[in-house]
């Protein structure tokens, strides 16, 4: 919607988002817009600074002890690696340690049922809880006759609601708009073919995001629904 560029409207929507009167689809849409628009995120942060201290006037109510028990169990489980899913810290660690990446790649390639060229870039996409949900990786595009990316679902696959599609987006550097890569299927391991024009831009990608869209994909060519997974791209070769 072009009007999202209007500064007054942006300020008003940010205020109503923080106050909580922005609801439903409008709220989800506004939330996903913030992922691609740092200046919008800043306006929201300013409104949070203005309004949210009001919460200091709410009465303090100690939660039942079972809440802390559950929280500490989940946190301790993740820290000790007991959680079946791999913790965020693990992935963060990987993101900075090149050597470790070789290891995880060897692991993936080792488990992989089919041979494939060495991966050049990888993006670990986290869900809103910071848990890795998907891994997207691709070899050097120049080396491929049929450019494609590989997508693996790390988590137990969340169900896709009836009448919706999941669309994968590449976030190009700078302020360029997200580029649609296509729709994801429910397979745990899948490849996605890329158009040549998109493939040439993959090397510059800094992030990947997945949004929930109406069946068949975004009608506008830009993400319209909530972003459920996102992650940064890291060069590994």
């Amino acid at each position: 919607m072009a009007s999202y560029k209007d500064p007054e409207l942006r300020d008003r929507l940010a205020a109503e988002y923080v106050l909580g009167t922005l609801r439903g689809r409008a709220r989800a849409r506004f939330e996903s817009l913030q992922h691609y628009d740092p200046s919008l995120r800043r306006i929201v942060a300013e409104w949070e600074e203005r309004i949210t201290p009001l919460a200091g006037a709410a009465s303090e109510i100690p939660p039942p002890a079972r809440v802390w028990k559950a929280v500490s169990r989940r946190v301790a489980g993740a820290a000790r690696g007991e959680d079946r899913r791999i913790s965020l810290a693990f992935w963060r660690g990987l993101a900075v340690t090149g050597a470790a990446f070789t290891l995880v790649l060897a692991l993936f390639i080792g488990l992989s049922p089919r041979p494939e060229p060495p991966m050049a870039m990888v993006a670990v996409m986290n869900d809103d809880k910071g848990q890795p949900a998907m891994v997207v990786s691709w070899p050097p595009m120049k080396a491929m006759r049929d450019p494609h990316i590989r997508i693996r679902v790390v988590q137990e696959h969340p169900t896709m609601a009836q009448g919706t599609s999941w669309e994968l987006w590449m976030l190009p550097p700078g302020k360029a708009a997200p580029v649609s890569l296509g729709l994801i299927s429910t397979d745990a391991d899948q490849t996605m073919k890329l158009k040549a024009a998109v493939a040439t831009r993959m090397e510059g990608a800094w992030g990947m995001a997945m949004s929930v869209e109406p069946e068949g994909g975004s009608p506008t060519g830009a993400p319209t629904g909530p972003v459920i997974f996102k992650g940064q791209c890291v060069k590994i070769l």
Binding site: G20, I61, P62, P63
Partner: peptide, 11 residues
């Protein structure tokens, strides 16, 4: 926790 629980409970 008491502060945040108060906020959540009210909403």
């Amino acid at each position: 926790a008491a502060k945040l629980y108060g906020v959540a409970l009210r909403i």
